[in-house]
């Protein structure tokens, strides 16, 4: 009886190790290349230890101008997220709590548009951006990307708020709040999990956005990380170590933020994304 359990358990742990290994191996390879002394060719010596040639990173950093792109990505992502959270949480509140034909229509439009990927609009959006002078500006990019993420976020907030009991606001109303202020004072604080889910899911999408950015951010000084990396790769295609160095710099912020907040991240998605 006991040995069956042991076999089951070891089998399970082996599976888990395999799964983890599958997910991690490309990162290991990337780091190995990034730290490799060889520039053009690949040398595999099965020592499984990188060369620790950190110069590649410094070179990649100075040659790529990733610094300004990091700033751009941060500004655009945080700006879009702030707008997204404020707009979609209040929309979700109104839709979830106060049923009216008006709110129902808005929700249905959002639900329908959830199915439309952003790229479909790109050309028309492009002409709009030219008209409003939004090409190569961070503010317009913030607006475009937050608008693109609105449907899914409104959907998440609406579902989540529906699952919170109404009493939460009602006690505040008794204290003399309006429904509007009750939301900001009370309900909003209950929304942390779903806000985390929105911030993670949509924030990553915005941070990694390429399809829109490649159109709207042409100038060097407004480029985001994915753009800068792709430009860099186009230019230094032969130099794998340099490319890997740049790739590591480019993916590091997202990975670090994720690892730092991973508990909050995964919990947030789990409690925020699927309700009702």
């Amino acid at each position: 009886m006991n040995w069956i359990r042991i076999i089951q358990k070891t089998g399970k742990y082996i599976t888990l190790v395999v799964i983890s290994f599958l997910s991690l191996i490309p990162f290991y390879i990337l780091i190995t290349i990034g730290l490799s002394k060889n520039v053009g060719k690949l040398k595999i010596d099965f020592s499984f230890l990188p060369d620790f040639h950190f110069v590649n990173f410094i070179l990649a950093w100075t040659k790529s101008g990733l610094g300004i792109s990091l700033v751009n990505s941060f500004v655009i992502t945080s700006g879009a997220l702030v707008i997204l959270v404020i707009f979609s949480s209040s929309a979700g509140y109104s839709i979830a709590r106060f049923a009216s034909p008006f709110n129902r229509t808005i929700l249905n439009i959002f639900l329908l548009c959830m199915m439309i990927p952003g790229i479909i609009n790109t050309v028309a959006l492009y002409t709009l951006m030219i008209k409003i002078g939004g090409i190569n500006t961070r503010w317009a990019m913030i607006l475009v990307l937050s608008a693109n993420s609105l449907p899914f976020s409104v959907f998440l907030y609406t579902n989540f708020i529906r699952s919170i009991p109404r009493d939460v606001e009602e006690s505040a109303i008794i204290d003399g709040c309006t429904w509007f202020s009750a939301f900001w004072r009370v309900t909003f604080h209950f929304l942390k999990p779903v806000t985390a889910a929105v911030a993670i899911l949509q924030g990553l999408g915005i941070w990694n956005n390429y399809a829109q950015a490649v159109f709207f951010l042409q100038r060097k000084d407004v480029r985001t990380i994915p753009l800068a990396i792709s430009m860099f790769f186009q230019q230094y295609g032969a130099n794998w170590s340099l490319m890997a160095g740049a790739a590591i710099i480019g993916l590091a912020p997202a990975v670090l933020i994720f690892l730092f907040f991973q508990k909050f991240f995964i919990k947030g998605i789990i409690s925020g994304a699927v309700k009702g």
């Binding site: 751009n72 945080s78 700006g79 702030v82 707008i83 404020i86 503010w139 913030i142 000084d221 407004v222």
Partner: peptide
């Protein structure tokens, strides 16, 4: 929140 928006977003945005 508004302060955050203005400070965090528009400042670096217009500066650049």
């Amino acid at each position: 929140l508004m302060c955050f928006v203005i400070f965090g977003v528009s400042f670096p945005l217009f500066a650049g």
